[in-house]
Design a protein around this nucleic acid. Structure first.
Lengths: 196, 196, 196, 196
DNA sequence: GGGTAAGCGAGACGGTACGTCAAGTCTTCTG
DNA sequence: CAGAAGACTTGACGTACCGTCTCGCTTACCC
């Protein structure tokens, strides 16, 4: 940290340094893209020694992974209005918004991209975030089953893939926009097929 | 590419060198992953000078893009049996197979991953390959419309997103397998909703 | 060597190309110094193919050596007034002028510099130019001996080294200017010692 | 410089690395000549990273300049016997020996050669070495003036040029040997003219 | 006067070295 | 003893020229 405030510390790590690193990483990703995030750059911007980063994070993707943090949970917990259609429409719209325009969404895309050539990252990304996100995504479906709005034998995993898959596809592959009518139509297709 | 066979040539480049580079790039990607593909490595393995690579390809992704070549078209042209259900089921199964198990599929995943932090690559990947692939993907739908098996006002682009989106999502995001029942179910959902 | 005027020729080389190469080499030496003279650069500026240069000159120093040409002989043939003192004073002043201010003098300094780490060049520089120059330098002394103005047993080679050595030393080593009083004083020292 | 002994260090550079680089540069110059000295080669032979060289020396001539170091002062401090003739004869013979046969003499010739097409090097070579050498060269003359063996109004700079110029000239230009009679004769000419 | 061979511009090729950048390791000093 | 500082090795980057080569054109000589 800045020269005035650095304290070597015999009792555990510096929270100050940790925060400075995570913010610097986020800023650099936003400013210069994934390739522009380097350990050297993070250290320089955070006013931190490289060794401090290496001591606590195995690689730069770990820093980003931690910087990604709980943002996804904060932004993408589906509502619970009691109405399945409303919950799904809102949630898919939020998902599209998150992925296409938010800062954490940019981090997510960067990490997912890197995960394509980094199996270890892929595993951690899934274990730390995607699994939990899918659990949140499934909540409206399970609540609807409980309410009797959806059949109890519905394969919710597959159904979820049908709902969110096209959104991720547009974001990650075609780069097409994901407007509200598109997400609403996904919900409509789902409800047509499964709602009693 | 050894010393005996190279010929300086007033009329353009050495096809030998070109092939050696593309094969070396493919091999390296398969062996060591995207990060393991370097210009130096390609040059060394292909027995080619670095300058020869820089002369003809602006970056290593361009090499991979060219190595990717027409593989997608070869592997993913949908059949035309006259029966929409059959055509779609076969095509989606082929797509899943291509993306999850083939060598060109691995190249595709690597390039798509890189495209998340490289807008220029994203654009080229779409213009050179994805757009044409989507055109091929749409053929069964258009033929079915012509035959009267699908309504003429069907929004085929959106429909295609619903069909293939979940496949790409599993491959790129969740890493879940994409078995035949999954792809067949996607076709079933589509036909339930749209077939007269 | 512009495109319109090149003529293939069964017997013998193109004088046009030769001239263009020599001029380009001279110009580059003047503009960018010795390190800035490259075969590629000469070829590009002369509008000539690299191969044409390699066909006729073994290396770039050969080009410069030829560009140096007869300039030294033209500039540094001592006068013959019949008076030893006058001849020597004029000649040394001319030598200083040649080495410090003329274009061929710059080429000479460059070649002499290169010769310090290139024994083959050193040999050729001496055989092609310095030996002949020393013969010209010695003419006034031999004429004076013939006239009886200098003792017949004078070691003219050593005497010449005493006369011109300090001039070259200033030019090549100290970089000090070589004004007329300095060269005149060299002549005075020589005449004091040897003239009868 | 081998693995055991290198220490990263907050306070300053590795003396070990410095020595290894300077020795490697000297060796390469002796073995392969000036053109054979490359940063890559120095690094490889010294067992040092290229970056370490670039960190501390702007270019290869700077390495050689430092390698040249104090060798000239060590070898070429004139004696002080109280007898001008003896001092000068010894010193000129030492100078000839240094320039023609010693290793530092070879470095000197290489640097002087390079200085012909590198004004910045020329300046540094003069400021760092030649000026000091000339001061040492002048000592016998000044002592003789103090003793009254030479006239107090003697232009010592010019006199020095007359004394050493022919030696440098033979070494750098003609390549002729510089035997003891030649240097003794230079001293004789000087004493004839100036000694009372 | 048509064939042929040399000289030429052009430029691709395998290479070497350049000088830069970031990675990740190590050591010392400071608080 | 954590953290700042920073020197170190390693290795890829992209550039500039090297010297060699093959090509297709343009002559000028020679039969």
């Amino acid at each position: 940290m800045r020269s005035t405030t650095h304290r070597g510390n015999r009792h555990g790590r510096s929270e100050e340094a940790r925060q400075a690193v995570l913010e610097a990483a986020d800023d650099l990703l936003a400013e210069k893209g994934f390739a522009g995030v380097t350990i050297e750059g993070i250290a320089a911007r955070a006013g931190v020694a490289k060794q401090t980063i290496y001591r606590w994070w195995p690689s730069k993707v770990d820093v980003l992974l931690e910087a990604f943090g709980e943002d996804m949970a904060d932004a993408l917990t589906p509502p619970d209005t009691g109405d399945l259609a409303t919950d799904l429409r809102t949630h898919l719209a939020n998902l599209a918004e998150f992925l296409t325009t938010s800062d954490p969404g940019a981090v997510f895309r960067a990490l997912t991209g890197q995960a394509q050539h980094d199996p270890a990252l892929a595993t951690r990304l899934r274990d730390d975030h995607l699994t939990h996100q899918r659990e949140r995504d499934l909540l409206p479906l399970h609540r609807a089953i409980t309410r009797g709005d959806l059949p109890p034998d519905l394969d919710t995993d597959t159904a979820l893939d049908h709902l969110v898959g096209p959104v991720y596809y547009r974001v990650l592959v075609t780069g097409a926009p994901v407007p509200r009518p598109f997400t609403d139509d996904l919900v409509a297709a789902f409800l047509d097929r499964h709602r009693r």
